[in-house]
Computed example of a mutant assay.
Amino acid sequence: MKDSRLFRILYYVLERGKATASELADKFEVSVRTIYRDIDSISAAGIPIYTTQGRGGGIRLAEDFVLNKSLLSKAEREQIMVALNGMNEVNSLHESELLTKLSALFKIKNTNWIEIDFNSWRDDKFYEKLFNEIKSAILTKNIVDFNYFASNGEETNRRVKPVRLLFKGYDWYLYAFCLLKNEFRYFKLSRIKQFMISDDKYADDFDNVVLKKKVIYQNMINLKVKFEKSAAFRVYDELPGLITKDKEGNLYANINIPNDYNLYNYIFSFGDKAEVIEPQEIRARIKDKIIKILDKYKT
């Protein structure tokens, strides 16, 4: 309790420039004698706080005082403020009061330099409930159950020990120990359905678990793809590496991609705006798939 009061006294004096002992006593509901003892404790900690007598007197801090001046350089204090400002935007846990206090203590202006919004433009509430339930299960160490729709179309019932929430590549994932597969797995939140927190607890200590890398595909293939200029926004957004352009404005890029359903899903996501130039066997397979699609729309 005392340590908390000492910090609040320090912040109060910093914020106002000075304060009287009686003012602080009323503020923190203690005696004036207790306030003077607190001032002595603050001073003993190496913080230059002092009392002046007479008209205009009171309890003050040295004008050039900055919290932890001897421990943190100006650059380090600025880095702390930048990091906390970014964290405030990311986790939305209302640390604005903390930022305001540290800004005053460090004597650094808190610049509003970043804004992050993980919600989709649809402005739906899909993630809010699921995200909070997963967070709760991780903190309380409850096993959870859900149906999961894998990218290959398979639906499975999963029972997992939730470890961590991860935001990567524009999507949220649950990293968990899967009791079905008996290993750590990633689960994309948008593919989790019928999520339930069970009453069963787990005792494993996963605090220091290092997230394993995503599966490295062995069967990769390099495509040369032509894109119409109207698809340029996606090409530049999504494809790394060299992108060339012809006289008509069409774009050409090489894509290294798993040689499985991911390949066709990705190419077809461009509709008629993309054409695989090479290799020829992939062109032939795409043609076969297009013929099968046309068969479905004959009537």
Rank of each mutant, 00 (worst) to 15 (best):
L180P: 01
M196K: 13
I192S: 02
G169L: 05
W172T: 03
L174M: 09
I192N: 05
Y202K: 10
K168I: 04
Y186V: 02
L166V: 15
S198T: 15
R185I: 03
K201W: 11
R191P: 01
L174W: 01
I192H: 03
E183W: 07
L174T: 00
F177N: 06
T156P: 02
L166W: 03
F187E: 05
Y170N: 12
D199Q: 11
L165H: 06
L166Y: 10
S190E: 13
D205M: 05
R159N: 08
I192C: 08
L180V: 09
R164M: 10
S198G: 08
R185L: 09
L174P: 00
F167A: 04
L174K: 00
I197Q: 13
Y186S: 02
R158V: 04
A203F: 02
K161I: 00
V160W: 01
R158G: 03
F195A: 02
V163N: 12
G169W: 02
E183R: 13
S190L: 10
G169P: 00
D205E: 05
F184R: 10
L189W: 12
Y173A: 03
Q194A: 07
F167V: 04
L174R: 00
K188F: 08
F184S: 13
F177K: 08
K201L: 14
L189N: 07
L179S: 11
K181H: 10
A176L: 03
R164W: 00
R191I: 04
N157H: 13
V160K: 01
T156I: 09
G169I: 05
R158F: 06
K193W: 09
D199H: 13
L180G: 01
L166I: 14
R191L: 12
D204Y: 04
A203D: 14
L165I: 14
Y175R: 14
R158W: 13
A176M: 05
L174E: 01
L180D: 10
Y175M: 15
F177V: 11
K161N: 13
Y170G: 00
F195P: 02
K201V: 13
R185M: 07
T156Q: 10
D199S: 08
I192D: 01
I192W: 05
R185F: 06
D171G: 05
D205P: 00
K193V: 07
F177Q: 07
Y175I: 15
L189Y: 06
R159E: 11
F167Q: 04
